[in-house]
Amino acid sequence: MTREAREDLEGTLLASNGTRAVGAGNRAHEEEPDPYRTCFERDRDRILHDSAFRRLAGKTQVFVFPGDHQRNRMTHALEVAQVARSIAQALSLNVPLAEAMAIGHDCGHGPGGHASEDALSPYLPDGFDHAPWGADVTLQPLNLCAETLDGIRNHSWSLPAPQTPEGEVVSWADRIAYVCHDFEDAAAAGIVTPGMLPDIVAERCGRDRSTQLGTFVRAMITATMSTGRIGMTPDIAEALAAFRSFNYEHVYLRPASTQQADAVIALLRALVEHYADRPHAIPSATARAALGDGVPLDLIEAGSQESITAAVAYVAGMTDRYACERGLVELNWDPTKLPTAVS
């Protein structure tokens, strides 16, 4: 089927609130439409083939330098996409749009997990948040649709709600996925055990990831179909909140995690300051994405806000391995002070 025929079919297949794909999509720079792919399918494909997405394989989800069976930031994004697809498909929403948002939602993340946000925030007037950074800087060269960028920019619960139901689904899917798989990884590492789960979680959602995911997905479908609003049944939403609180107490904020975060913050700040003093060592494509086309790159002064912003963009795009390597090579960093993996 041609793109036009498939767009026409959306009028029949999608729910009344589902986001329709039209032509080349609502992009900052106009393009010719693809003959076969919808605009949101093109967005999904562009993100999937972009180096920013590939670098997620080398970025921390919870554990720095994850083992072969622990999640990294890429596997997290793929699991979010699977959860979002399951929910969006059942609710007759636009599945390719949900997939594009989910695959791209963490492309703005720095190395070392959420500690990178604490590390990089002091260098920017509005702080560093991986969600808007991913939409407005990291993925800016891809000329994505406004709807896709909105879902990426606002997937975090601390930000305004996304403007589309697909974006709301991805926001929930992100929380569902990381709560379940971060616990599974922590259990595999011996940090927690299934028996430690709060009763409200174990009794309402189960103790294994498959059962938990199924429960959360069905609770979203049931609630949304009955109310017409993207959400989750109150009893299971309460269990999800308790599950997340448990992870914070026993996984994310345990002493080893805070020590790992401190090591990440020290390294990344040193790298930003190093490159801010050497703006011409920053790749031009990285600097241009962060500063825009109107800033002459060869005139950036060392130590200026422009050089600092470009340095943040460069460091934020690094993988864990590359950031540590640059610390050793460029800064003569003490190897004993690098973040370490969980054995």
Rank of each mutant, 00 (worst) to 15 (best):
T193R: 14
L240C: 10
C107R: 07
R278A: 15
L213C: 01
S284Q: 13
R218N: 12
V137P: 10
T164H: 14
D45K: 14
G231S: 02
V295I: 15
V83F: 09
G134T: 05
G23S: 04
A24C: 03
T211V: 03
Q82Y: 06
C39K: 08
A241E: 02
E32L: 13
A287E: 02
S51I: 14
P141F: 09
W157K: 07
G294N: 14
D182P: 12
A270N: 08
S304A: 11
R20K: 14
L139C: 08
D129E: 05
G25E: 01
I47L: 10
Q259E: 08
L197D: 10
S86L: 09
A276H: 02
V64R: 13
D68H: 11
P198T: 07
A241F: 00
D199N: 06
Y36I: 11
T12K: 12
V295K: 11
L139Q: 09
A24P: 03
E10I: 06
S116W: 09
G214M: 00
I87W: 07
T258D: 01
P122I: 15
Q260T: 10
S210I: 01
H76R: 08
D262V: 03
H49T: 12
G108T: 07
R54S: 13
H105A: 00
A81H: 06
R326V: 09
N154D: 01
T319F: 03
P296R: 10
R288Q: 15
A316I: 10
L120D: 05
A177Q: 15
A188D: 13
A186P: 09
G231H: 04
D277M: 13
P162V: 07
G327L: 06
H274E: 02
R54H: 14
H114M: 09
V295M: 10
A98N: 06
T148M: 11
R73L: 14
C145G: 14
H76Q: 06
A261F: 07
T138E: 11
D8P: 00
W157Y: 04
H280S: 15
G317I: 04
C324I: 04
L291M: 05
A57M: 04
L328D: 02
N17H: 12
E249Y: 03
W333S: 03
Q61W: 08
A323W: 02
P33A: 03
G127V: 12
